[in-house]
Structures are given as structure tokens and as C-alpha cells.
């Protein structure tokens, strides 16, 4: 019963996602919107603005630095959680 339910919901899930596929931009399409708008600006301007040749680094640490701060907080959370859960002293 449960297996069929799982298969059914997987099929539904697959169908919904597959519905969107033909509409997504082609693989490697240089004119895809994702590669234009903001990304273009990063490629063009990041060196003058942050002085790092690696654009990924520039974006990671500069333009979207707060995502990285959040990322750190996630690791911190996970670390504390793991300690809380499996450290002997706290059990």
C-alpha cells in the first residue's frame, strides 16, 4: 500500500517536473536569461570592483557576502546540533 502510494507520488512529482522541462533554456545557451542579467554584470564588473580574478570568489565574498555569512551560521547550527545530539556529556 505504502509502496504504491510512494510510487504514485513519485510519478506525479516526475510528471510535474517533466512538464516544465521543454520550456527551460537549452543546456549551454549563452542567451539564457540566467546568464545575462545579473551574471553579466558580475563577469564584467567584479574585477574593477573587488580586485579578485576569481569571479565566484568575488560574488561569494563580496556581492553576496551575507549568504556566506548565513552559510557559516548553518554550519554553526549543525555543529551545535550534532554536539547536542551525540555528545556524551549532554546525554
Amino acid at each position: 500500500m505504502r509502496r504504491y502510494l510512494a510510487i504514485l507520488s513519485c510519478a506525479l512529482f516526475f510528471a510535474i517536473l517533466a512538464y516544465g522541462v521543454p520550456d527551460l533554456p537549452d543546456l549551454g545557451d549563452p542567451d539564457a536569461p540566467a546568464n545575462k542579467h545579473v551574471a553579466q554584470r558580475y563577469i564584467e564588473g567584479s574585477y574593477t570592483e573587488s580586485g579578485v580574478p576569481n569571479i565566484v570568489t568575488a560574488v561569494l565574498a563580496n556581492y553576496r557576502g551575507y549568504d556566506t555569512l548565513g552559510e557559516t551560521a548553518v554550519i554553526f547550527t549543525a555543529g551545535i546540533t550534532v554536539m547536542l545530539l551525540i555528545r556524551r556529556k549532554w546525554n
Binding site: 540566467a34 558580475y42 560574488v59 548565513g70 554550519i75 549543525a78
Partner: peptide, 20 residues
């Protein structure tokens, strides 16, 4: 470069979730 940046963050999130 942008999705790479996002995914770097998301990978960390995924690893943290897995650890928890």
C-alpha cells in the same frame, strides 16, 4: 558564476542537514 556561488552555499546546507 552566480549559480556556482549559490550552490556552494546550498551544498553546505545539504551537508549540515545530513550531519543533523
Amino acid at each position: 558564476p552566480l549559480p556556482h556561488v549559490l550552490i556552494l552555499t546550498a551544498i553546505v546546507v545539504a551537508v549540515s542537514t545530513l550531519a543533523v
